[in-house]
Design a protein around this nucleic acid. Sequence first.
DNA 1: TAGCTCGTTGGACAA
DNA 2: TTTGTCCAACGAGCT
Length: 474
Amino acid sequence: MNHALVWFRLDLRVADNPALAQAVAAHDAVTPVFIWAPEEETPWAPGGASRWWLHQSLRAFQADLAARNSRLILRRGPTADVLMTLAAETGARAVYWNRRYEPAMIARDREIQRRFREAGLAAEGFPGNLLYEPGTVANREGKPFRVFTAFWRAWRSMPAPALSLDAPTRLPSPERWPDSLPLADLALEPKIDWAAGLRETWQPGEAGALQQLNAFLRDHVDAYTAERDRPDHEGTSRLSPHLHFGEISARQVWHALSPHPNAEPYLRQIAWREFAYHLLFHFPQTPNEALRPEFRRFPWQLDPRMLHAWTRGRTGYPFVDAGMRELWRTGWMHNRVRMVTASFLVKHLLIPWQEGARWFWDTLVDADLANNTLGWQWCAGCGADAAPYFRIFNPVLQGEKFDPAGAYVRRWIPELARLPDAWIHKPAPREVLAAAGVELGRTYPAQVVDHQAARERALAALAGIVKSGGHPIA
DNA sequence: TAGCTCGTTGGACAA
DNA sequence: TTTGTCCAACGAGCT
């Protein structure tokens, strides 16, 4: 039989899957395989929340494949060895996958391709995870954009993407299936069950992704510009984890949105995702190092107690704490609040952005190396397209502006629920606190830093690295 | 080309 | 209370 392997990673879908489509079109037996090899992704192996999601998504994908008379073979790494072994076991002459763009993943794909080709086997990656691959959008000099708006203009004027590929109705199975590990053997789920909030919030898998997209199109896309900044409302798409795991493709989202008269603001967000991959591709050190070299001299202060207060939502700034608790409970945080919490860690506490990136990496179900890196560097002011450095979010004003009635704070910080709206985001007078049953320092922490003092300290620190010259240290 | 403008998501302060 | 202006920079991208 003319047999092919399809190696799945962050493309856990049957619809609009170029690698799968190629295998079905050109082969009369297809073996889908997923290989768990987190050591190959260090130091950015999937964190706890990502592993939880992956477990659920793999289970859903197994069912989707079973409904098409197929299976998902599960194995553990090393990936290249496993794929070679599987090719030998099944007699497959080819392996296909959809490309990933993280530096370590690019290197791994290249190595697998080399080994397969040396063995006389086909090995081919396909573009399935982005609308336009890194390297295809460049400025007039042929250099990578570093400013989003310019990237967006170029990106938007690219030829429209081809139509999405239909899901194959039936996948040709091999005469004999190779062995598969049980899903539980990948040990992706937490040993102590902390995932109740995740289960309540999400439906991982391709069906859940489509449902989420349709709900967004039906209920939220029209008001997106106004509502996307309101964490107290349900105004965003909440597609990020589905996109990260490839349960839905950016191309499917693009085609679903495009006919819509109010699609542009959301497509811009899709372009941000592509910009993040573009930056990671061209600046592969950025998950660990500031893009702007002068920030390597920034006088960070790694205070473990402050960091702990931030991670657990105990900074005394309700808008910040609500966000951190939403993250801890649901594996997700509203984008507006991500900016404010990140800014608070970096600018108010002067804790290195990498610490925040690492915490988000472990707790977000949508943790994505490109997006996480861009987001943190942007907030820290050390990345591409950085805002003027003297822009420091005021966590009280941000709360009052984007959660005016305090509903978001009350939802995640029940101990403040009885405070009146006017005092929900800032320390209330003694009698107001008493009436609401709040005792600062006991039922809810006092502010760990004073905003004004922290702001001045951050501005002084920033002035220091600018004044001492913008040259990179050797 | 050499200068100009502007940067997803602001804030503080004066008037 | 609202509105306008400036705030310690810098450099990509454009004309």
